[in-house]
């Protein structure tokens, strides 16, 4: 279905970017303040859903040529994979570790393996939510 709503489209363009930025922020800040993989992923997904609602599906698909099913599968692989990663260091399955580094620009920064795990979670959430919405709405 074609929707021709200029105002909505213009607004959505800007809003989508704000939401996407928020999503990234929420994802990265999850360790120490509200946020995290789930929320980040959901917000990201909702930004995409907004785009799908405003523009038609084909257009968005051309703009973002990502197979969301594969994205979800990759995310699950990443989360499960980090679990096995800890086995390589002799730690029990899914042990996470963290350390503090002095990076040039960021100052004292905490780097954790949880972030990789959470990234997997976020990707699954994005992939699955978008897949669900897309498959239902495409099937007319």
């Amino acid at each position: 279905m074609k929707i021709n709503n200029v105002i909505l489209q213009t607004v959505a363009k800007i809003v989508a970017f704000i939401i996407l930025t928020l999503a990234v922020y929420l994802f990265l800040s999850g360790h120490n303040s509200p946020g995290g993989g789930f929320i980040g992923g959901l917000v990201l997904a909702s930004a995409l859903v907004l785009l799908f609602v405003v523009y038609d599906i084909e257009k968005v698909k051309n703009a973002i040529p990502v197979d969301f099913k594969k994205l979800a599968a990759f995310g699950a692989f990443l989360s499960v994979g980090t679990g096995f990663g800890s086995l390589l260091f002799g730690a029990p399955f899914l042990s996470q570790s963290f350390a503090y580094f002095d990076l040039p620009f960021f100052g004292k920064t905490e780097l954790t393996t949880v972030t990789i795990f959470e990234a997997g979670v976020a990707l699954v959430v994005v992939g699955v939510v978008v897949t669900i919405i897309l498959s239902i709405s495409e099937d007319v």
Partner: peptide
């Protein structure tokens, strides 16, 4: 190493559930 307790539970203490 996380100040957000909820997320630490999800990502670290009970990561198996989350996975």
């Amino acid at each position: 190493g996380g100040k957000n307790i909820v997320n630490s539970i999800l990502g670290d203490f009970r990561a198996f559930d989350t996975m």
